[in-house]
Write a protein that binds this DNA or RNA. Structure first.
Lengths: 355, 355
DNA sequence: CGGAGCATGGAGAGCGCTCTCCACTACATA
DNA sequence: TATGTAGTGGAGAGCGCTCTCCATGCTCCG
């Protein structure tokens, strides 16, 4: 007596998935023709075209991505790489980073471009140099066709490695070291200008600024814009204190600034977290915000809303920037010879209570 | 005269990537042996082992994932699926969702499990039924080995479709409709108990609750826990008003609640956003928080920190839950016959100023 | 000393797909 | 009728890998 050799088709896990071959047989054509129809290439008789699609429906065929990318050398995937220089991979900083809306807004922006084109988004986090090396290898091998890179550290070597490896990439944020890779960025200097003009418009005359770390390009640009706008209005000089983008550094910086300019009535802070700290510290000194000192922050992060009074701040169009970075990567994948490009977005002042 | 046929190796894009074959040649062994070494299987002479790794280094070999998964039928990828029932894919709700730390915390939790094992995370957003169908097809074809699913809508059919298709999956949050898929969840009822006991501990006697939508399991559980804990303390009845988890609904609900219980001195609200709205509305009625009415929220979201006074609230261990869901998927991929499992996490009360 | 038994490495098939060739038909042109 | 020219579909190679078989060489015991 013979036993059936075919496995039970009831369990979808063991059921053999239909292949191109099966569709071809069902449609009575060759594998190649089915492939042509599915990929919409070349001249296929419209009659056959219809028959093939019918067979696809009937068999429930879904193309096998692995097989396809093995031959096309395209994975249909773009990686979103978060690169940071932490000592170990489970750094608490990363936890904070993920919990920050910043990350989600970028994901949303990138997805809005990728999804309509049926391209996958693969998330990659690299904290160590070792991980970066592996990532470059994997991308070079075609694990993804390109990468949108979030470099969180100014000394990050990843952009350069990606360039060396010839991987299609775009950076979110101008790289600290010039590197021939396209990037999107915010016109940080324009943000500084916005802050300056708002404070001057309010009638502030004794201004000051808490800057970000001097080696971060965005910090420099915010300062430059602020300074130039003030200069245009005749303010040749104002005190600045460098902060580290953290709450504590904002507090310290404010106290130092007050020492150097006790009459301060207008303050620009290079990010919201430090601005929030500054506002708290001002109130601790019995200075009212905005009546005694008007404060403008930067980022429009959740810190701006947590602060009391809520912060007037400079806002990134982050989703749009992320979307554009995805477009840049896609363009580069299509045509690697494309010239390196940068797209700069304009910030917007969000007026709340602090200024 | 002969021209060199080999392409210039200077451009990494056109340079042929080394394959197993190349490594085998360099090591003077067969392809199969190299494969064995790289995958760490079976008995390979330690001497050859060393030689092979040396050849891997020398050639800069990186395995081709597509080729490998074509034969192993494993992609080495887990999908993080966000499933919602929106009319079109670019719903503003999605924008808000991505900007919410909730999303990032889950990504972080899932990554913490996947990364050490070298497994990719692919992000998938499905808003329409059509997209859901395609997703199930793609996953069935092996685009990913399994999926962590965030179902944002109680009527979502995706979990059931995944089960039908035999795809390894785990849900974050108990499904509204029972379905044989593992899930992680918060002990929402325990959260209700925490809130009740905190309010009673403060001496509140005239209690009330603003619940979430009745059809959302989490809402029901929060109410149940709160009710049972109060009952244990002799509070047989308290007024409840149903809200919709939105700011506006919280406002409206509070006003209705005050009408039914003007003497209210203790309030439990099923999420922070509504709680924040309730606090504002209470202050608008000249009722002090927490002195006149103590308020406990739920989620420990950014709304809890935005509120003034800041909210005492019930906190999810969201990262841990997400990590566990990833573990469940991985376990199921390894052994599809595993029984369906649920892992319930305990919430924690975060005491701030509102109660 | 012969053969069983085991450790080890190689040969080769084949995963599902794309894409280059090539064959064939149909029609126009010489 | 012989030849040129599209347009169309099929045959088949091969992408890079894993894994099952099989051959080989060795040890060990009767």
């Amino acid at each position: 007596m013979l036993r059936a050799i075919k496995p039970a088709m009831s369990d979808p896990r063991s059921a053999r998935k239909p292949t191109l071959e099966d569709v071809a047989e069902a449609a009575g054509v060759s594998r190649a023709t089915v492939s042509r129809v599915i990929n919409g290439v070349r001249n296929v008789d419209p009659k056959l075209h219809a028959i093939v699609w019918q067979a696809v429906d009937a068999t429930g065929y879904v193309p096998n991505r692995a097989a396809r990318s093995l031959v096309t050398r395209r994975s249909g995937t773009v990686a979103l790489v978060v690169s940071d220089a932490v000592s170990h991979d489970d750094d608490p900083f990363m936890r904070r980073f993920f919990a920050d809306p910043f990350f989600g807004r970028i994901v949303g922006g990138v997805m809005s471009v990728l999804r309509p084109r049926g391209i996958q988004l693969a998330l990659q986090i690299v904290g160590t140099d070792d991980a970066r090396g592996r990532l470059v290898g994997d991308l070079g091998q075609g694990q993804a066709d390109g990468a949108v890179v979030l470099s969180l550290h100014p000394d990050d070597t990843l952009p350069h490695q990606l360039y060396e490896a010839g991987i299609a990439a775009a950076l979110v944020g101008r790289p600290a070291q010039p590197v021939p890779i396209s990037y999107v960025d915010l016109a940080n200097d324009a943000g500084g200008v916005l802050a300056a003009e708002h404070l001057i418009g309010r009638g502030c005359t004794r201004l000051g600024m808490i800057t970000g770390p001097a080696h971060v390009p965005a910090s420099q640009d915010r300062l430059t814009g602020f300074r130039q706008a003030l200069a245009r209005h005749g303010h040749a000089w104002f005190p600045t204190v460098e902060g580290g983008f953290t709450y504590e550094s904002g507090e310290t910086a404010l106290l130092e600034l007050l020492e150097r300019q006790p009459e301060l009535d207008g303050l620009f802070v290079a990010n919201d977290v430090m601005a929030q700290a500054a506002v708290m510290a001002l109130r601790g000194r019995e200075l009212r915000v905005p009546d005694d000192v008007a404060v403008v922050g930067f980022d429009d992060s959740s810190a701006a809303l947590d602060a009391r009074p809520q912060l007037t701040t400079v806002r990134h169009p982050l989703e749009d920037m992320a979307a554009e970075s995805a477009r840049l990567v896609l363009a580069r994948i299509d045509d690697p010879s494309l010239r390196v490009e940068s797209v700069i977005f304009d910030p917007k002042l969000v007026v709340r209570q602090s200024a």
